[in-house]
Design a protein around this nucleic acid. Structure first.
Length: 432
RNA sequence: GUGACCGUAGCUAAAUAGGCAGAGCUCUGGAUUGUGGCUCCAGCGGUUGUGGGUUCAAGCCCCAUCGGUCACCCCA
């Protein structure tokens, strides 16, 4: 086909056939979030670049090489603002919390959102340059019960969707009190081993030492196993917080695993971090954690917060892998066909469809003046329960021939009756 | 950003060892004029992702480029 344009790399269309999955996930997530007392927020897709710059972290790949950033058009003074397609949801949400004075509301403020996010990565399984996250953020209170609540919420979402084989990994990465010291300890441990490490780890040592623990190279596994773990180096407040989170989480009956090796990639995380992975393919479905220092980075007062982002594409991928099918789209109740080519017949058909739809009955009709046979074929293909036939005789009688398309073959039983127009609606509404 | 594999109709896909690009599904029309599913017939739909090169001849071989899939990196 002659065509000049394709969707950009890593961007894709979500076609109608796919929408049932999206609706299923969004509806379920909304219901679970509301059950937990979360309220929806929407923030702009474009933000000033500064919103993400220091919060997500200057040294992170996201900020360093994956953001879609550009200078906006010049204002009257000729000044151009550098703006960015949001790569994640937390920073913008906290910005909105501060800007709109949500700190004046009873604390904490519990929010959820859906949205497209943009990162210029190389596409891969469950990864796109435009992807969607279901996210929750709780801002304004540092209670460890909230940490447990968020994990409980996510777990309930996945089980409600019907997912199994979900692994919940939990860790604490300390805060500005204890983490810097731990990182020094970790580096001291690694320094003599460095020459024996893989290429990536040599870089990680300087750039993001915590990520040394994330390495998957076989040659480094023994080093990781013997490395000092951050949980053993937490300061007292962080340790107490982490213990409390686990206690509360048991109340939610969420089977979790303490994984001293999970460290999140974004700079703003403190204390509790968690991620849920599929045990089938090790795919991370969501990531999240506490970010008690984030509000200050955005110029606000010290404000505790915690949240997660769950990848909708990844959840849908997992649903498909586990053979979970979303509720099917509702089929039309009736399909109106007209036999004959007069303007009166077509008008009667349009009028009938209009009447049904306005009465709340899902109805379809055939367009383009096709033959009776073609219209009946379409009626059948539409999955409608009934074909409503209007021809010359029906028009004269102010009636409609009703044919049940669901039961039996046409040879065994015709199942066609002529009904008065006024009998039609009650039958379609209440009939089987 | 690095690497591997792969691009044939809307979808799924054939095409010995370079030799006329063939199917199935979908869609449209028809099988005695107002009746669906099953069956049968026909039609629409391709510059084989794109651009070069080798060759008498390229879907097939070579180069480049774009895209897809997957892994690494990183992350939802």
């Amino acid at each position: 086909m002659p065509q000049n344009y394709k969707a950009l790399q890593g961007f894709r269309d979500i076609l109608p056939d796919e929408q049932a999955y999206w609706y299923f996930v969004e509806k379920t997530a909304t219901e679970v979030a509301q059950l937990y007392g979360y309220r929806r927020i929407e923030t702009p897709i474009l933000e000033e670049t500064g919103v993400f710059y220091r919060t997500v972290g200057e040294g992170t790949d996201i900020v360093e090489k994956e953001m879609y950033s550009f200078d906006d058009r010049a204002d009257k003074e000729g000044h151009r603002t550098n703006i960015t397609l949001r790569p994640e949801g937390t920073a913008g949400t906290v910005r909105a919390y501060l800007e709109n004075g949500l700190f004046k509301l009873p604390q904490p403020v519990k929010l959820f959102y859906f949205g497209p996010f943009f990162r210029r990565e190389k596409p891969q399984a469950g990864r796109y340059r435009e992807h969607h996250q279901f996210g929750c953020e709780v801002i304004g209170d540092g209670d460890p019960a909230i940490d447990a609540e968020l994990v409980g919420l996510l777990y309930q979402l996945y089980t409600t969707l019907g997912l199994r084989y979900i692994r919940v990994n939990l860790n604490s990465i300390g805060d500005s009190n204890c983490r810097p010291q731990y990182i020094e300890t970790l580096k001291e441990y690694y320094r003599p081993l460095l020459s024996d490490c893989c290429q990536d780890c040599q870089v990680r040592f300087y750039k993001n030492p915590l990520r040394l623990l994330d390495c998957k190279e076989p040659q480094d596994q023994a080093k990781i196993k013997a490395a000092p773990k951050i949980v053993e180096y937490l300061c007292e407040p962080c340790r107490e917080h982490f213990v409390a989170v686990q206690q509360f989480l048991k109340q939610y009956n969420v089977p979790f695993t303490l994984d001293p090796l999970i460290v999140r990639g974004l700079d703003y995380y403190t204390r509790t971090v968690f991620e849920f992975t599929s045990e089938i393919d090790k795919l991370a479905l969501n990531g999240g954690g506490r970010y008690d220092g984030l509000a200050e980075l955005l110029g606000g007062p010290p404000t505790p917060g915690i949240g997660f982002g769950a990848g909708v594409e990844r959840i849908i991928l997992e649903l498909k892998k586990q053979g979970i099918v979303p509720p099917v789209e509702e089929k039309p109740r009736a399909f109106v066909v007209h036999f004959g080519k007069t303007a009166e017949l077509k008008e009667a058909a349009v009028g009938l469809v209009a009447e049904l739809r306005q009465a709340g009955i899902k109805a379809e009709m055939s367009y383009g003046d096709r033959s009776p046979k073609a219209q009946m074929k379409q009626a059948n293909a539409s999955g409608a329960a009934y074909a409503l036939i209007i021809g010359e005789s029906e028009l004269a009688n102010k009636s409609v021939s009703v044919k049940d398309l669901r039961a039996g073959s046409m040879e065994t039983e015709q199942k066609q009756v002529e009904m008065k127009r006024e009998e039609l609606l009650p039958m379609l509404k209440h009939g089987h």
